[in-house]
Write a protein that binds this DNA or RNA. Structure first.
Length: 858
RNA sequence: GCCCCCGUGGCGGAAUUGGUAGACGCGGCAGACUCAAAAUCUGUUGCCUUCACGGGCGUGCCUGUUCGAGUCAGGCCGGGGGCACCA
């Protein structure tokens, strides 16, 4: 008996697929297309189990669809710009480009050992000028189309590293790496106008039927559409401020306008800035507000604070009412107009603020059944529905009606307008980084911001950069940024900021359609391949990457690159790969490979110290609970790793990687190998005609085989791979225990083997290919069509019917399909278990659900 | 605080969408083979009760709808995720 040699076999078939160029595709219109895409990896240096899970799922779909006759595009590339390359440059003195391309080479080899059905001829790396030059062109086109603009915005500035930090990189108000106190600074930033499509991006979520509901909800919340009104509050004194004669506020509750008791400005509001110029204490207050970070934690703890400017505004619908104007720390400049009116009775924040500064609290919404003479608001604002009171012409109206009525009134008085506000903000893409796509503009003292002419693209990154100084190496480079203005020819400077790396991943799926084209994308290629039929990746990209890609697709359409709105027709978000964690008695994390078992079977360190086992969490370097996929593939082969990935856990859920689980998968690989190779000699030759008639045993086997085709096909279609795996186990178990040497039986057995091999082919492609050959075929299994179940075989002739008495199972009877009710009744009553349960009681009802269940009510 | 998802054996999970709860795998137990072990194979494995036949209980908890509920409805409890001074 030979053991299956995974290592040799896998390499052999990978070469065979490669030699036959099985997975290289063109725009072949004789077959329907199917585009399978997994989120491309960042070339960090090694693949991890998350990649293995992601690409295994994608490969099952790609191979399955291919077998179903689709022309399948299944490409792979590298999301190659990013901060880790710069960190490596600083720590290891390796240029970021070299580091990245080396990592790509390593990871490409690692991925190839998985046996994925990828069209490697389409490989792309986003850090290659052949890729990012098109992105620069897109930027210029977006600029022309008004989809990009430049804006002063507040950023987290690290004064030591001289760079902008993302919110996630600010920890307790300090830079994550420099540990310096982060400052808020106003810097000019390039911004993509994603809000241009806010309504479309929201409305079209409804068309994404093959997206997880969860992701659609998250995007829905992120876009955050609110209907309300902009209302103008004029200052009581015309010269109150130098710039404006009024405060514009946004509210979703115009119905509570008569409950207003103050207005508040964001500390960053232009009016506040203006006022601070004349009031030192106000300036000190604003400085204090800016010092507090924007982290959730800081916000949570911060008390609601305000500074009374002493200015007053008039109520827009009741000019005799004057309201004080505060600068308040809880008003955000980024949302609405950066100013609010406060209605303490019906908003908790406003109420807290009003109590602190002793402002009026006038209720204007009366809860149902409440007495208007009695109702007051204490420490809790009333935010529910009700009827309006204390509000002049609105009295007696419901909340919704009052909103409409107020907006009408405001509009007729030109004191405000009904409006829609989004939470979604435009996408700032400027990063003070080296390892990203250069933003193709030039700053000229005379001409201002001048786009780089298309003929001068790409603006390539210099390779001779130094990371010795803090800040952006592009800025320090002796020559790179110095150039001439394309407009007037005078000496000018290049933009040294680069794009946010989410930019590259916002259109790579389109580049795969024509990866070597001189254009960003060939129209006939994207028209043929897009949209991506099935996109697969982690749920952590539910909002940013997926939303940016949806934006980019719309922007590209507007600029004539392609003609569709939604890039991803189907989306599947897979769960994380988890593993137990281990700590020694000092609390140090231990790697799974650092453990051994003592005589009692308890885990101990190499030196024999006790180890505590922690709960299973996502594999991460910091907790040291990672398993290296290359080691697993080296030991067990890719098929075993793939099979285990698909077994047990549903793919959308987190799974736990266990040694026992891998070994179980490995045993199954060996079992399949033995089952088929040991038996093949006794079987009729491949392609033998079916015997004239089949005995009961052979017919039974055929029924099981064809039922399995249906079950596995359905399971794969529904991404229920764990169920597909279970059905394949069942078929295998059945074949292991079946016997019989008749010609009909052996013929049915060959059929079962061939079906089995073809069904697990997408999951364990190398083993399947090898067994297909050993079954006597000289074709490649990957070129075989998916098996089709013969529906006539699947139909059962008899079925087992449960018999209940008062809803409790008492017996089962075996009856022919579609048996008459009378016969079922007789058979059911003949069961001793049924008789015992009836126990001579009167039968009140006899329920027979056809081919389902029998229930006797006594 | 708001929105969403999930609670089934020792464990991962099935259950044709209201019709035999626990498929399949892992683990455990018993046995076969073996000088022995590994590997492999066979049987068994929700809980309680009974010598046995059998009986009772059981899908987080409580109510309800139904001939029949893991599945539907209402209310709790627990876990997870997303958003959040968003006006």
């Amino acid at each position: 008996m030979t053991r299956y040699n995974a290592k040799e076999t896998e390499i052999k078939w990978q070469r065979a697929w490669d030699d036959a160029a099985c997975f290289a595709v063109t725009e072949d219109r004789s077959n329907p297309k199917y585009y399978v895409l997994e989120m491309f990896p960042y070339p960090s240096g090694r693949i991890h189990m998350g990649h293995v899970r992601n690409y295994t799922i994608g490969d099952v779909i790609a191979r399955y669809k291919r077998a179903r006759g689709f022309n399948v595009l299944h490409p792979m590339g590298w999301d190659a710009f990013g901060l880790p390359a710069e960190n490596a440059a600083i720590e290891k003195k390796v240029p970021p480009g070299d580091w990245t391309y080396e990592n790509i080479a390593i990871m490409r080899d690692q991925l190839k050992t998985m046996g994925l059905s990828l069209d490697w001829s389409r490989e792309i790396a986003t850090c290659h000028p052949g890729y990012y030059r098109h992105e620069q062109k897109m930027f210029l086109d977006f600029l022309k189309a008004g989809l990009v603009y430049r804006k002063e915005s507040w950023v987290n500035w690290d004064p030591v590293d001289h760079t902008v930090l993302a919110n996630e990189q600010v920890i307790d108000g300090r830079g994550w790496r420099s540990n310096a106190l982060v400052e808020k600074r106003k810097l000019p930033q390039w911004v993509f106008k994603i809000t241009e499509f806010a309504d479309d991006l929201l409305d079209d979520l409804q068309t994404l039927e093959r997206w997880p509901e969860k992701v659609r909800v998250m995007q829905h919340n992120w876009i955050g559409r609110s209907e309300g009104a902009r209302v103008r509050f004029p200052f009581t004194e015309p010269g109150a401020t130098a710039t404006e004669s009024e405060i514009k506020v946004f509210t979703t509750r115009p119905d509570t306008l008569f409950g207003a008791s103050f207005c508040a400005l964001s500390p960053n509001h232009p009016l506040a800035t203006d006022f601070c110029g004349r009031d030192e204490k106000a300036a000190a207050f604003v400085a204090e507000c800016n010092r507090l970070g924007t982290s959730e934690e800081a916000i949570e703890k911060a008390e609601k604070l305000g500074y009374d400017t002493g200015l007053k505004v008039r109520h827009p619908l009741a000019p005799e009412i004057e309201l004080p104007v505060f600068i308040a720390n809880f008003v955000l400049m980024e949302y609405g107009t950066g100013a609010i009116f406060g209605c303490p009775a019906h908003d908790q924040r406003d109420l807290d603020f009003a109590r602190k500064y002793d402002l009026n609290v006038t209720p204007v919404v009366l809860p149902p059944q409440a007495d208007p003479a009695e109702f007051t608001v204490g420490s809790e604002a009333y935010v529910g529905d009700g009827s309006i009171f204390n509000s002049r012409f609105l009295d007696g109206l419901g909340v919704e009606e009052a909103k409409r009525r107020v907006i009408e009134e405001l509009e007729s008085l030109k004191a405000g307008t009904g409006t829609v506000q989004f939470r979604l903000r435009d996408w700032g893409v400027s990063r003070q980084r080296y390892w990203g796509c250069p933003i193709p503009v030039i700053h000229c003292d005379d001409c201002g911001v001048v786009p780089v002419p298309e003929s001068s693209l790409p603006v390539e990154l210099p390779t001779d950069v130094s990371f010795d100084k803090p800040g952006n190496p592009l800025d320090h480079h002796p020559t790179w940024k110095h150039t001439n203005c394309p407009s007037c020819g005078k000496a000018a400077q290049r933009e040294t900021d680069t794009f946010d790396t989410f930019t590259e991943s916002s259109w790579y799926f389109a580049r795969f359609c024509s990866p070597r084209s001189e254009n960003a994308m060939d129209r006939q290629a994207v028209d043929y391949w897009l949209p991506v039929d099935q996109y697969i990746g982690g749920v952590e990209h539910a909002v940013l990457h997926l939303l940016y890609s949806r934006f980019f697709t719309r922007a590209l359409k507007r600029c004539g690159y392609l003609d569709l709105e939604e890039p991803f027709e189907g989306l599947f978000t897979q769960g994380m790969v988890c593993h137990e964690t281990y700590q020694d008695d000092a609390g140090n994390w231990l790697q799974p490979t650092d453990l051994r078992r003592d005589d009692a079977g308890n885990p101990v360190t190499a030196s024999g110290k006790p180890v505590s086992i922690g709960r299973s969490i996502k594999m991460s370097k910091s907790k040291k609970n990672t398993i290296d996929p290359t080691e697993i593939i080296g030991t067990y082969g890719a098929d075993t790793a793939r099979w285990f990935m698909l077994s047990d856990s549903p793919p959308e859920r987190d799974m736990e990687w266990t040694e026992a689980g891998v070994e179980g998968a490995w045993r199954f690989v060996q079992r399949l190998w033995r089952l088929i190779t040991e038996d093949v000699a006794s079987l009729p030759a491949a392609g033998s005609a079916a015997p004239a008639s089949l005995g009961a045993g052979a017919a039974d086997m055929r029924r099981t085989t064809h039922k399995t085709i249906t079950d596995v096909t359905d399971a794969i279609e529904q991404f229920r791979f764990n169920r597909a795996v279970a059905k394949l186990y069942e078929l295998t178990n059945g074949l292991t225990s079946s016997s019989g040497t008749g010609a009909d039986m052996l013929w049915a057995r060959r059929e079962a083997f061939e079906v089995l091999v073809r069904l697990f082919g997408p999951m364990m492609p190398h083993l399947a290919e090898e067994l297909w050959q050993r079954l006597g075929h000289d074709t490649l299994l990957v070129d075989q069509p998916w098996p089709v179940a013969e529906s006539s075989l699947i139909k059962e002739e008899t079925l087992t019917l449960p018999v209940q008495v008062n809803g409790k199972l008492r017996a089962t009877i075996t009856v022919p399909l579609d048996e008459t009710e009378d016969a079922i009744r007789t058979a059911a009553l003949a069961e001793p278990g049924v008789q015992r349960a009836i126990d001579g009681k009167e039968i009140r009802k006899f329920i027979i659900v056809k081919n389902r269940v029998v229930n006797i009510v006594v």
